[in-house]
Lab assay of single mutants.
Amino acid sequence: SADYSSLTVVQLKDLLTKRNLSVGGLKNEWVQRLIKDDEES
Rank of each mutant, 00 (worst) to 15 (best):
19 R>M: 04
22 S>P: 14
2 A>R: 13
19 R>T: 03
16 L>T: 04
28 N>W: 14
19 R>Q: 05
17 T>M: 13
24 G>D: 15
23 V>A: 09
6 S>M: 09
10 V>G: 13
31 V>I: 15
27 K>W: 07
14 D>V: 07
21 L>W: 00
26 L>G: 15
11 Q>H: 04
20 N>D: 09
28 N>S: 10
37 D>N: 11
27 K>L: 13
14 D>W: 03
5 S>E: 14
11 Q>N: 03
41 S>D: 09
20 N>Y: 03
12 L>C: 00
17 T>V: 14
13 K>E: 09
32 Q>I: 08
26 L>P: 11
15 L>F: 04
40 E>Y: 10
6 S>A: 11
24 G>H: 15
36 K>V: 09
18 K>G: 07
15 L>C: 09
15 L>I: 10
17 T>K: 12
29 E>Q: 07
24 G>Q: 15
34 L>W: 00
4 Y>W: 02
28 N>M: 08
23 V>T: 15
6 S>T: 10
39 E>T: 09
39 E>H: 11
4 Y>E: 04
1 S>Y: 14
41 S>P: 09
26 L>Y: 10
11 Q>K: 04
16 L>D: 03
1 S>I: 13
16 L>K: 01
30 W>T: 04
11 Q>D: 08
21 L>F: 00
28 N>A: 11
41 S>E: 09
40 E>F: 10
12 L>I: 08
2 A>F: 15
36 K>F: 09
40 E>Q: 13
26 L>R: 11
13 K>V: 13
8 T>C: 08
21 L>R: 01
39 E>F: 12
3 D>N: 07
29 E>W: 00
29 E>A: 05
38 D>L: 07
7 L>N: 04
22 S>W: 02
25 G>W: 01
24 G>N: 14
4 Y>R: 02
28 N>G: 11
24 G>S: 15
29 E>K: 02
23 V>Y: 08
23 V>W: 06
8 T>F: 00
33 R>M: 08
5 S>K: 10
34 L>H: 00
14 D>L: 05
15 L>Q: 05
38 D>C: 07
4 Y>L: 04
31 V>F: 05
14 D>N: 09
35 I>W: 04
23 V>L: 15
28 N>I: 08
32 Q>R: 06
16 L>Q: 02
12 L>F: 00
11 Q>G: 04
5 S>F: 08
20 N>T: 01
19 R>D: 05
13 K>W: 05
3 D>T: 05
1 S>P: 13
39 E>K: 10
18 K>N: 09
38 D>E: 04
8 T>V: 05
11 Q>I: 07
1 S>H: 13
3 D>W: 10
30 W>F: 08
19 R>E: 05
26 L>C: 14
16 L>G: 01
22 S>R: 05
12 L>G: 00
6 S>E: 12
36 K>W: 10
21 L>E: 04
12 L>S: 01
31 V>S: 00
5 S>T: 12
9 V>D: 15
13 K>Y: 08
4 Y>P: 03
37 D>L: 06
28 N>L: 09
14 D>K: 08
3 D>F: 10
1 S>D: 11
16 L>M: 06
29 E>L: 00
33 R>T: 07
29 E>M: 02
31 V>W: 05
29 E>H: 07
10 V>E: 15
34 L>Y: 01
39 E>R: 10
36 K>R: 12
27 K>T: 09
2 A>C: 14
31 V>C: 06
22 S>L: 06
5 S>G: 14
19 R>S: 04
24 G>F: 01
18 K>V: 08
37 D>F: 15
6 S>Q: 13
40 E>L: 15
35 I>E: 10
5 S>R: 09
3 D>M: 07
6 S>N: 13
23 V>N: 08
16 L>C: 06
34 L>E: 02
2 A>D: 12
33 R>F: 01
16 L>N: 00
22 S>K: 07
30 W>V: 05
13 K>T: 08
12 L>R: 00
11 Q>M: 08
22 S>Q: 08
31 V>A: 01
26 L>A: 14
20 N>V: 01
36 K>T: 10
32 Q>V: 09
19 R>I: 04
29 E>T: 01
3 D>V: 06
34 L>C: 07
35 I>K: 09
34 L>F: 01
10 V>P: 13
14 D>H: 07
38 D>G: 03
17 T>G: 09
40 E>W: 10
22 S>T: 07
27 K>Q: 09
20 N>C: 10
36 K>E: 13
25 G>E: 03
27 K>I: 11
36 K>Q: 13
18 K>M: 09
17 T>P: 02
17 T>S: 10
6 S>F: 07
22 S>I: 06
35 I>V: 10
15 L>E: 11
26 L>V: 12
19 R>A: 04
19 R>H: 05
39 E>P: 02
7 L>P: 02
16 L>F: 00
29 E>P: 00
14 D>C: 09
14 D>S: 06
4 Y>T: 03
9 V>M: 13
13 K>S: 06
12 L>V: 04
38 D>P: 00
38 D>I: 07
16 L>E: 03
38 D>V: 05
3 D>I: 08
26 L>W: 08
36 K>S: 10
37 D>I: 03
40 E>R: 13
18 K>E: 13
12 L>Q: 01
29 E>S: 05
6 S>Y: 08
41 S>A: 14
7 L>F: 05
6 S>P: 00
38 D>Q: 04
33 R>W: 00
39 E>V: 10
41 S>C: 10
15 L>M: 11
21 L>D: 04
24 G>T: 14
41 S>I: 11
4 Y>N: 03
32 Q>T: 11
36 K>Y: 08
32 Q>S: 11
11 Q>E: 14
17 T>R: 14
38 D>H: 05
8 T>W: 00
25 G>S: 03
11 Q>W: 00
20 N>W: 01
19 R>P: 04
6 S>C: 12
41 S>W: 12
8 T>L: 03
7 L>A: 05
